[in-house]
C-alpha cells in the first residue's frame, strides 16, 4: 500500500464510522501507541472534513495489560493512557495499524474497562493480516492482507517513522 492507498482506506473507514454511529458526539477514537494513535488522529481528521464534526480522540496503553508477563524476554515500553471520562454511554473505537493475533486488542479492551464501562467498543485497523488467536474481529478494515506467519507486515507513517507512508510485506 502506498500513501494514497492508505489515505483512501482511512477516509473510507471515516465514512463507515459516520454511517454506523449517528451520534458522533459519543464516539471516542482511541489509538494504540504508537501508530494507532496517528491512525486515530487521521480518521478523526477525515470525519471533521466530511461531517464538520469533532470527535474525541484518546490513547490506550496496552503494554501494562499484556498477557505474557511470565514469559517475555523483552520489556515493552509503557505509555500514558488518555481517555475522556466518564466512558458510560460512549462508543470507544480502538484504532491500530495491524490486526494480527488479537492479543493487543484484548489488552486494549482490558485497559478501557479500567476507565469505566463504555456503551460499546469497536475496532478499526489499517491492515488485517489474519492469524487470530482470540475470538476478535474488526469492525472497520482498511485492507485485508492474507499472510503467512513467517512474513512480517511493516506499516510506516510519516509522523511516527520519519518517512513516507506505506505498508510493506516482508518475507522471512
Amino acid at each position: 500500500m502506498d500513501a494514497e492507498a492508505i489515505r483512501r482506506a482511512l477516509r473510507r473507514i471515516a465514512h463507515e464510522i459516520i454511517e454506523r454511529n449517528p451520534h458522533l458526539e459519543n464516539v471516542v477514537l482511541a489509538g494504540i501507541p504508537s501508530r494507532g494513535v496517528e491512525i486515530a488522529r487521521r480518521i478523526a481528521g477525515f470525519i471533521r472534513e466530511i461531517e464538520k464534526a469533532d470527535v474525541d480522540t484518546g490513547v490506550i496503553d496496552v503494554a501494562m495489560h499484556r498477557d505474557d508477563v511470565g514469559t517475555r524476554k523483552e520489556l515493552p515500553v509503557v505509555h500514558a493512557s488518555k481517555l475522556p471520562v466518564p466512558l458510560e454511554e460512549r462508543t470507544v473505537i480502538i484504532a491500530d495499524d495491524v490486526l494480527y493475533t488479537g492479543r493487543t486488542v484484548r489488552a486494549a479492551m482490558d485497559a478501557i474497562n479500567s476507565f469505566g464501562r463504555p456503551a460499546r467498543i469497536q475496532l478499526a485497523v489499517l491492515v488485517d493480516r489474519g492469524h487470530r488467536e482470540l475470538p476478535i474481529r474488526p469492525d472497520y478494515v482498511g485492507k485485508n492482507l492474507p499472510t503467512a506467519t513467517r512474513e512480517q507486515i511493516q506499516v510506516r507513517l510519516q509522523e511516527t517513522d520519519n518517512g513516507p507512508d506505506g505498508v510493506w510485506l516482508e518475507k522471512d
Binding site: 496503553d61 501494562m64 508477563v69 515500553v77 509503557v78 493512557s81 485497559a111 479500567s114 476507565f115
Partner: peptide, 23 residues
C-alpha cells in the same frame, strides 16, 4: 517517562493493572 504512564493509572476508576501479575 515510564513513571508518567503509571501515574496515569492512579487516575483511573480501577487503579490496578496486570503488569506484574503472578510475581
Amino acid at each position: 517517562e515510564t513513571t508518567d504512564a503509571f501515574k496515569q493509572v492512579g487516575t483511573r476508576e480501577i487503579k490496578k493493572v496486570p503488569a506484574l501479575r503472578g510475581k
